[in-house]
Design a protein around this nucleic acid. Structure first.
Lengths: 148, 148
DNA sequence: CCTTGACCTTCCTATGATTGGAAGGATTAC
DNA sequence: GTAATCCTTCCAATCATAGGAAGGTCAAGG
């Protein structure tokens, strides 16, 4: 199987498969004489595992740990559970941060009549010297929400 | 006022002030003869406005719009409100995504006894060919949650 | 007056996961 | 035989931020 076929079978783009190989998340594949990467069904299974873990928001580092636990028949389920619950805690912290931001903004927007006049409590709040009314601090690495 | 003083007065790091200048979010300041940037209280006020907007998760692009509306005495509050509510919508979509991930993971973790035995429903789920039980797809730009 | 330390300057690098493209070779289908 | 579609590697961009190196400047104290 070529990389393109492995990509569509696994849901991981060819670009990402090469990237995962380059960072060591997946091993280097065998190649054809002309240098094409060759994948087995087993490789595709691993890629699908990886994609699912990404869909759940795990970092590549965590995924590497999960994959190696998956491969280890003598793993302790505790180790897996720890990774999962740590991640849940991170997710929940993020959720709270975003909720604080959203609720602060919603309150401000409710008080803004949103017409053609210049008066605007949202800008007033941003320009104010007082602390923000709700705890609504982005942590730097997350503030911009990616491209969304 | 030097950049360091402006930084501590505004809560925006000197690094970021230079960056904001380089991308045109704030104008180039005057300099001393020896090349040091000089800031006024007014500049600090603008920086604090920017920091608050960042704390609410606005992107630099949105902040540029907000700052220019703030400067414009003839703005329509509608324009500000639109930016704010668009951002709220993005935040709420993100919140839902993260909640889906967290709830999926919590369900899986609940069924994992978390002891020294290898049996683990979390890994089983990741390895499964079935679709994930809850709609829990990360959008790519957000999946890894930054460094957190 | 001179040194020391704390500041400032610019420039380059890294982060994390992903996408995009360019330039060139391989394969496949007609 | 040729066109289209794949593959290869390498480089760049995203977004906001932090870190560091190399070198110039300033203030205080001896």
């Amino acid at each position: 199987m070529n990389i393109g076929q492995a990509a569509s079978a696994s849901g991981v783009s060819a670009k990402m498969i090469r990237y995962y190989e380059s960072i060591g998340l997946i091993p280097k594949t065998i190649r054809t004489e002309s240098g094409y990467r060759v994948y087995s069904d087993h490789d595709v299974h691993t890629l699908r595992f990886i994609r699912r873990a990404r869909d759940l928001g795990f970092s590549v580092e965590q995924i590497a740990d999960l994959v190696s636990l998956w491969r280890d028949r003598e793993r302790a389920s505790k180790d897996v559970k720890t990774i999962a619950l740590d991640h849940v805690a991170v997710l929940e912290r993020k959720i709270r941060e975003l909720q604080d931001m959203a609720s602060t903004l919603k309150h401000l927007a409710e008080n803004c009549c949103g017409d053609s006049r210049p008066h605007c409590p949202i800008l007033e709040e941003l320009a104010s010297e007082e602390p923000l009314p709700v705890h609504a601090k982005a942590d730097a690495k997350f503030g911009a929400l990616g491209k969304a």
